[in-house]
Amino acid sequence: MNIKITDKAVSWFENEMGLEPGDGVHFFGKVYGKTEIHEGFSVGMRIEKPDSNLLGKVKINGITYFASKEDDWFFSRYDLVVDYDDKKEEPIYHFNAKE
Rank of each mutant, 00 (worst) to 15 (best):
Met1Val: 10
Met1Thr: 13
Asn2Pro: 12
Asn2Arg: 15
Asn2Phe: 14
Ile3His: 11
Lys4Val: 13
Lys4Gly: 01
Val10Pro: 04
Glu14Val: 09
Met17His: 07
Gly18Ala: 08
Glu20Phe: 06
Gly24Tyr: 03
Gly24Ser: 07
Val25Asn: 04
Phe27Asp: 02
Lys30Cys: 11
Val31Gly: 04
Gly33Asn: 09
Lys34Ser: 07
Thr35Pro: 14
Glu36Ser: 12
His38Pro: 11
Gly40Tyr: 11
Phe41Glu: 15
Ser42Cys: 04
Ser42His: 11
Val43Ser: 04
Met45Arg: 08
Met45Lys: 11
Arg46Asp: 11
Ile47Arg: 01
Ile47Leu: 03
Glu48Asp: 12
Lys49Cys: 00
Pro50Phe: 13
Pro50Ala: 06
Asp51Ile: 11
Asp51Ser: 06
Ser52His: 13
Ser52Trp: 15
Asn53Gln: 13
Leu54Gly: 05
Leu54His: 08
Leu55Trp: 05
Gly56Asp: 12
Gly56Met: 09
Gly56Thr: 07
Val58Gln: 10
Val58Glu: 04
Lys59Met: 10
Ile60Gln: 05
Ile60Ser: 02
Ile63Gln: 06
Ile63Leu: 08
Tyr65Glu: 15
Tyr65Pro: 14
Tyr65Ser: 08
Phe66His: 04
Phe66Cys: 13
Phe66Met: 00
Phe66Arg: 02
Ala67His: 00
Ala67Ser: 14
Ser68Cys: 08
Lys69Cys: 10
Lys69Arg: 10
Glu70Ser: 12
Asp71Asn: 14
Asp71Trp: 11
Asp72Ala: 13
Trp73Arg: 06
Phe74His: 04
Phe75Leu: 02
Phe75Trp: 15
Phe75Asn: 09
Tyr78Glu: 03
Leu80His: 02
Val82Thr: 08
Val82Gly: 07
Asp83Gln: 06
Tyr84Glu: 05
Asp85Arg: 03
Asp85Thr: 00
Asp86Pro: 14
Lys87Val: 10
Lys87Ala: 04
Lys88Cys: 09
Glu89Asn: 13
Glu90Tyr: 07
Ile92Val: 15
His94Ala: 05
Phe95Pro: 11
Asn96His: 11
Ala97Cys: 07
Glu99Asn: 03
